[in-house]
Computed example of a mutant assay.
Amino acid sequence: MRLRLRLFEFEDLPWFPAIIRAGMMDYLRFMISTLGTYRPITPLLAEGLARTGQTRVLELGAGAGGGTETVLATLRTHGQPDTTITLTDLYPQPAAWADIARQTQGAIGYEPTSVNALAVPAHLPGFRAIFSAFHHFPPAAAEAMLRDAVRANTGIGVFEGAGKHWAELLLAWTVLPVAQLLLTPFFRPFRLSRLVFTYLIPLIPLCTIWDGSVSLLRMYSTTELLALAHAADPERRFVWHVGKERHWWGPEVTYLIGWPDTSLSEG
């Protein structure tokens, strides 16, 4: 799918009710964690940590923290046993994040205040990563995010849990809504509001279908990702890699990852 449309997503709108946004994020967190969406790119992230000598991943645009526990566990089996992860977002979700922090005995922590991914505060170090959220940023903002990582001389990985195919759009309209209706009672932490706005007033599933479809249409292709990286790093201070990694059972993850080019300092 080469088509890329700049449609709106409900979760991006400042006036969008936080209670509905939280319900949508809870669903995404459950699905991404259960399916191990980002398991295929963990070796890439592990390499980024090793090449930059860091042990902390600073997750930008973390939402409800979906899949982070799987990423942490897999990193620790790929030569990064001391890795920790800090969750950040423009719209923090400390209630959901506190639950993750408890389950991981603090290995996954969080910043409770709002964090702008385009200008990360200096007191939040770490190899930056953004999962399932880079498409929310228009080209100028996406480039600014990458430029801020280059300026800070820290690595950054951009990961989208899809390969941008028409079949994925069909899934967003058919199979995934049914899964959401069947699985919602099992999401944790329990929220009565989640049940109300899923079954009685189905705003959560309807908005999820829209946002999931728009997410695929807004995704950057690998060519576009590399062009953004080169625009953000005109002096080529970073080494950039772009591509797709496939799960053994089919789905793909699109990625862009970069870290400081040590050969420049050696030269």
Rank of each mutant, 00 (worst) to 15 (best):
A172L: 07
V239I: 07
T86N: 03
F10Y: 15
L171A: 09
Q103W: 04
V239G: 02
Q93R: 15
P234T: 03
T262Q: 13
I20V: 11
D233V: 00
G53Q: 05
L146G: 00
E9S: 03
L5P: 01
Y38A: 01
L181P: 00
V196H: 03
L7Y: 10
V242S: 05
H230L: 10
V178Q: 06
T68G: 06
L5K: 03
T88L: 05
L7M: 04
V242N: 06
R191L: 02
C207T: 11
N153D: 15
P202T: 03
L13M: 11
T254V: 08
A152F: 01
R147Q: 06
A227Y: 08
A95E: 14
M24I: 15
T174W: 04
H136Y: 11
G267C: 05
F159E: 00
R39V: 15
I108V: 08
A167T: 12
R6D: 11
I201V: 13
R246E: 08
T37D: 01
S193I: 02
D82G: 07
G53Y: 06
T42A: 13
I204K: 05
T174N: 04
D261E: 06
S263E: 11
E160Y: 04
H241F: 10
S263Y: 07
I130D: 04
M31F: 14
L3W: 10
T208L: 15
T262P: 14
F137L: 09
S213G: 15
A231E: 08
E69G: 15
E59H: 07
A107H: 09
W97E: 01
V158Q: 00
L35N: 09
W249Q: 12
I32F: 15
P125A: 03
I204T: 01
L206K: 00
T254Q: 12
W173H: 12
I19N: 02
V214P: 00
V239K: 03
E252Q: 05
T70S: 11
A46F: 07
E69S: 13
F159Q: 01
A129E: 06
H123M: 11
V57T: 03
A141C: 04
R6F: 05
G163P: 08
F197Y: 06
V57F: 06
V178R: 09
P17H: 01
P81D: 13
L195E: 00
